[in-house]
Nucleic acid binder design. Sequence first.
DNA 1: GCCAACGTTGGC
DNA 2: GCCAACGTTGGC
Length: 159
Amino acid sequence: MAKRYWLMKSEPNAFSFDDLMNSPDRTTCWDGVRNYQARNFMRDDMQLGDGVLYYHSRIKPMAIVGIATVVKTGYPDYTAHDPEDKHFDPKSSPEKPRWSMVDIQGIQALKTPLTLTMLRDVEALNDMPLLKKGQRLSVQPLSEGNWKNILKLGGIEAS
DNA sequence: GCCAACGTTGGC
DNA sequence: GCCAACGTTGGC
């Protein structure tokens, strides 16, 4: 299957791109997603080696700050089964897991973080889900064209 | 911190 | 299966 591209949102107060780069193997499991559409992308569509843009939400400045890649495809999000966990969901169980996650590995920070404001100013990016009004998905698909544009704007050689 | 947009839940 | 109520997201 052809390589796909994604944008994933994180609140840096909870888990920032630096946190990812400082993790063992620069890798983390993307737990806690409790939205069916976002889950379906992770469970059904993400492939090893897919490109991931890392976006910081709910902070000043909101921006795409780095790139990562998928290193483990969809598997059950076990945090749903821990009553102590913030993301506990009694309707999910190890036998019938409701939620999925993937592992991503940080690659590098953008030389130039691309703030929401900057992104809105780029006409070629107008069709990005991120820039659409009311778009709240924390995992979004991204076209190859937009991926390349963003890497270029961010000062990274396309890979 | 506010609140619009949107997703989910549950009574009917 | 509708839809009001409720909870959450996330830009501002």
